[in-house]
Design a protein around this nucleic acid. Sequence first.
DNA 1: CTGTTAGCGCCTTCAA
DNA 2: TTGAAGGCGCTAACAG
Lengths: 335, 335
Amino acid sequence: MTNIKKVSELAGVSTATVSRTLKSPDLVTAQTREKVMEAVKRAGYRPNWLASSVKSGKSNSIVVLVPNLVNPFFMRIIEGIEQAAQENGYSVLLGDTQGRAERENEYASMVLTNRADGLIQLDHSFPFSAADAELAAAVPMVSVCERIEGEKKFPVIELDNYAAGRALTHHLISYGHQRFGIIAGQIASQIHHDRLAGIRSVMQEEGLEFDEKMLVGGSYQIETGIQGVQDLLKLPARPTAIICFNDDIAIGALHEIKRQGLRVPQDISLTGFDNIRVSPYMDPPLTTVDQPANDMGRRAVEVLLQLIKRQPLKRSREILPFHLLERGSSGPVPR
Amino acid sequence: MTNIKKVSELAGVSTATVSRTLKSPDLVTAQTREKVMEAVKRAGYRPNWLASSVKSGKSNSIVVLVPNLVNPFFMRIIEGIEQAAQENGYSVLLGDTQGRAERENEYASMVLTNRADGLIQLDHSFPFSAADAELAAAVPMVSVCERIEGEKKFPVIELDNYAAGRALTHHLISYGHQRFGIIAGQIASQIHHDRLAGIRSVMQEEGLEFDEKMLVGGSYQIETGIQGVQDLLKLPARPTAIICFNDDIAIGALHEIKRQGLRVPQDISLTGFDNIRVSPYMDPPLTTVDQPANDMGRRAVEVLLQLIKRQPLKRSREILPFHLLERGSSGPVPR
DNA sequence: CTGTTAGCGCCTTCAA
DNA sequence: TTGAAGGCGCTAACAG
């Protein structure tokens, strides 16, 4: 281990001078600077980050809790987080929780042990263990995309899922659809609740009835889309339009609809959420709700850094705009 | 900041005793233990990880350099890395480099400053700056998937890309194909080289000639597939089979082939690499080379930890098996 | 402008 | 079994 002391000996100065030369070169004479830099180079010295951090008490790291790394939508959020973090001199500790509480607890506790300065949660659960709950109250934490259950005190960056649900429904109704199937993702979440409420509100306004049997699914996976379509097409009055709560589900649904010999959108219209990379290249391209995932990630970091620096927040809830992308998978109701 | 001193006062013992109680409870009496634990609880004390780490000189973190987070294949590798790291008590620092040298340098230098104990590189470049190159020689570093250019001293976990190229070519030749188009990803990489060599070797053995004009592309993106097909279909003698160097490229290619009114596989056979999540659900499902991405990530961590612990390595190059998945996108040559 | 000194919070001898 | 003391590597305050 080549440390500051070795360098100071090599340069014939004190350790303080070495430290100063590296942190604020203006405070030492050009001559000293040269000597020190020379020694630094010769010794191959790099300041020990751990040691500086103990002093400052700040790790300049944030931990990101993500339920599932392979979900492309999450990855775009994380990309935004990573970029914003880097720009601000922070590093990102990745916490793949697989939605499991023990893992969440473990990663969340990193903030309590000074291993990280703040926490971004992509899932909807309160990540701390019961034992840590009290301590957690003072922790800088932000949730993106989902909202942490029952917790009003942590800022959230989210989409207007209610409005998105409404927009999709209006879009489909404008094509004459009246019987909607829904293939949902994770049920126990605010997102689910908001989207569903948006869809229902429009249906009600239009005098349409929503049959609870038309709501299927339960996780954000391709396989859920396949199973969901199987369930929906078994119903006596099958839906003419299916709203999937993410594009993965829609991809599975599309595959299964075609497998059963039906056509999209001629027989059934299909919509998704997220606008993942492949969505425009499906056959037909998916009508979907585009979410500004990268921005959501970036914004989450900005808010988190404000919390970390104890700066006042303008608002504790930010709602980002969505865009309904009308593509080939939705069209006029069959007659 | 609630530190060990506060707890010691609260418990009426020395700081040493508190530390001991937490690290090796057996070394203190039951009575002391109880007192200390009580105080720990009351104070809401968590040992400062930074401080412990300065002492030990180990951060128990590894940094992962990834050129592009949104690539689903990389994500599966990272998932494996994350899992294995967690199981071994290590955390993962995420370094999204976008393939840019400055970023690589910056992240790589984390290992030199004790911010991380080791490094996993998913790209093919030597991530350290010229200035750091010497120091880097002693750094625990492993490359997965790609091989670091010109560097023989760092272990690598990779696929037998040569054999995979051969297997694909044999598969297509067995269907009667003779004119192959190739849409490549990143050209300057060992992967590219190996796959191409594999393909060429089989063609040569079969007495087929490879026309250099049939090699197009240059990045692992959907758009590359689209452009690649446009280029290939302009040729006077167009290919009857197109080998894409990842599934994203194949997805773009598939889309463009269909857009031009041709059918897969009746008019053109198409193959990919990686077997990403959506590949089986494309229309038609993609014939592709499945790579054990998760395992590759896990294995990389295992090897890296051996390096970190200065344990001897059995071998410095591990080649994992691939599986050729024959699905609907490849079929008999049209006649 | 530079060096001495005193910690940051923790852990680990060493001695009692 | 426990406590006192020193030190991990670095930095900041204070002298000089």
